[in-house]
């Protein structure tokens, strides 16, 4: 009779282990880890946006190259069932004034308030479009406060250097990564 206890005991252990391990073996758990997938994509874009900006500067069309690149990565993200939205701005010195161009790829029209060392300009930017404004003779090192929706960023930038700044959001299912890119 004692030997059968071993068998019954083994069956009970197997049952308990199965109940304990079953959630780990469910398809949602053993499938591709979504968080890791968008994490790679975020890192990749974080490195590549500034490169696209620099390559655009080389061909004297940074705005157009960034518009193209933003559409390109949005299309690539959509192929992977990922939603990507970004808002970026570039600052360039033009005849001692400061030109700021904002690119809106958030998926909707938005207003962006720019405060350059106390001077405030508001730009309305349609979705997938750019809009620009000029600030007269700011100091060589200036503070830029960017406001849109509920986001506010405070940047300290140099006038004689071309600057790139972006807020990027990547979503897949319930996973979301939001971050800033500065170059």
């Amino acid at each position: 009779m004692k030997g059968q206890f071993f068998l019954i005991g083994a069956l009970l252990i197997v049952l308990m282990l199965y109940i304990g391990i079953a959630p780990l073996l469910s398809p949602s758990h053993i499938g591709p880890e979504i968080g890791e997938d968008i994490s790679n994509m975020f890192e990749n874009i974080e490195m590549e946006y500034p490169r696209a900006f620099n390559l655009g500067l080389v061909s004297s069309s940074a705005e157009q190259k960034l518009v193209n690149f933003s559409s390109f990565i949005a299309e690539e993200a959509s192929e992977r069932s990922v939603t990507l939205s970004s808002l970026w701005l570039i600052t360039q010195n033009v005849s001692d004034n400061l030109n700021i161009t904002v690119g809106n790829f958030l998926g909707y029209n938005t207003s962006v308030t720019l405060n350059v060392s106390g001077t405030v300009n508001t730009l309305y930017v349609e979705d997938s479009k750019i809009n620009s404004t000029v600030f007269s003779s700011p100091p060589s090192e200036f503070q830029l406060i960017v406001n849109f929706n509920t986001t506010e960023s405070n940047l300290l930038l140099e006038k004689y250097k071309a600057n790139f700044y972006s807020v990027l959001e990547i979503r897949k299912g319930t996973d979301k990564i939001v971050g800033e890119i500065k170059a």
């Binding site: 590549e48 390559l55 193209n68």
Partner: peptide, 16 residues
């Protein structure tokens, strides 16, 4: 599948 986005090499040329 693993993907890697590139914006170009010496000039702007985006690809995956």
């Amino acid at each position: 599948v693993s993907n890697y986005i590139i914006s170009g090499h010496n000039s702007y040329d985006p690809l995956v």
